Amino acid sequence: MEVRTIKVFTTVDNINLHTQVVDMSMTYGQQFGPTYLDGADVTKIKPHNSHEGKTFYVLPNDDTLRVEAFEYYHTTDPSFLGRYMSALNHTKKWKYPQVNGLTSIKWADNNCYLATALLTLQQIELKFNPPALQDAYYRARAGEAANFCALILAYCNKTVGELGDVRETMSYLFQHANLDSCKRVLNVVCKTCGQQQTTLKGVEAVMYMGTLSYEQFKKGVQIPCTCGKQATKYLVQQESPFVMMSAPPAQYELKHGTFTCASEYTGNYQCGHYKHITSKETLYCIDGALLTKSSEYKGPITDVFYKENSYTTTIK
């Protein structure tokens, strides 16, 4: 009895394709271990004539594949690729409408935090270190965002349907971005203890939790000093293409032309909904596939993004 075979390709990165001759009487799992086709788990399936010449994702289970996976995804987590594939199996079914010149995501599976993050990423200057993220990001900007969303979920250790947080998501993504040249110098002034300067680099240099107003941050924000008295913390120097200011959701007025974009969060910790506000020729609110415009805006804002380049204080 002759062994019926077909020729397929296996890959971990969709760049390096490895030619395989597979036995049609055995499952993919018996031949390769966990195997995925377009995100779908085909591990328990036997090869079919229609699979001839198709590319299958496999887990990096030998040295060659491990090197290829690390170079593309910059992670050695053995569960990463499987999590990416199972997320992709959902995100490829989502709709990605162009809204006001940006790629958004039609609401499904509690994905409003991903839509808000995706919209924000198209408006701030950011370059990702893992080629996987950078490639998928370019495709997302062009309207094909399924891979990018699935990668975000995998890097953030999230599953489809789980509630997510924009600030946490951005923080994970910033860790995989090139923020080497970003720098922030802060000064804390206390009447009792004097003053202390701190220099922050990388992710810490672009994120701040405690106030939404970048102007206020430049002037000074009140913080408790270690001595128990009130101290003032203010920005001395900022070198970065953008800054992200966050605070627990509270009524906040966004003035046209003073910011790049913002995240609105309605609801409580267990259950809520994100919308995205962007400042173009007027203010726009993007909620999944829905767009509304207004000249002014007041609502429960939790993150505001500002364009920056270089700032030095005039406070002496």
Rank of each mutant, 00 (worst) to 15 (best):
A145F: 02
V99W: 11
W94K: 06
P60E: 12
F70D: 09
M207L: 04
F9N: 11
S50T: 12
I6L: 13
L283P: 01
G220A: 05
V3W: 11
F148M: 13
S279T: 03
H51D: 14
T43L: 04
V160W: 04
C149K: 05
L118R: 01
T116F: 04
C149R: 06
E71I: 11
T5H: 12
Y138G: 13
H51K: 02
N89Q: 05
Y72M: 11
E308C: 06
I105N: 11
L153H: 02
G220T: 04
Q216R: 09
N110C: 06
K218W: 08
K7C: 14
Q195W: 12
E71Q: 13
Q134P: 07
N157M: 04
S240C: 00
E162L: 00
G210C: 06
G33V: 05
G29D: 09
V42M: 13
T64Q: 15
T103G: 02
N129I: 10
C112V: 07
S240I: 01
K201D: 06
R66P: 08
C285I: 15
K255H: 09
K127A: 10
V12P: 12
Q230L: 15
L283D: 04
L186Q: 09
P224A: 12
T266H: 06
S171C: 14
I105S: 08
P248R: 07
G272Y: 05
A108Y: 05
M244P: 00
A40N: 14
G53D: 13
A289L: 04
S79L: 12
C285T: 13
N61I: 11
I301C: 00
T266A: 07
I286D: 06
T91W: 11
Y36R: 03
E71N: 09
C156D: 06
L65M: 11
Q30K: 12
P241Q: 06
I105A: 01
K316I: 15
T19C: 06
A117S: 07
T282P: 01
V188M: 08
K127F: 11
A132H: 01
E239Y: 07
V21K: 13
K293V: 11
V243T: 04
K275N: 01
S295K: 14
N49M: 14
M26C: 14
C193S: 02
S50Y: 13
I315V: 13
Y297I: 01
V189K: 11
H256T: 13
S246F: 00
Y284H: 06
D180A: 07
A250Q: 15
P248I: 07
C156W: 08
H18D: 13
Q20K: 14
Q30A: 15
E68Y: 06
A40G: 13
K158T: 08
C193A: 00
K92P: 03
S181Q: 15
L235A: 03
C285M: 00
V203A: 13
V21L: 14
K316V: 15
Y84G: 06
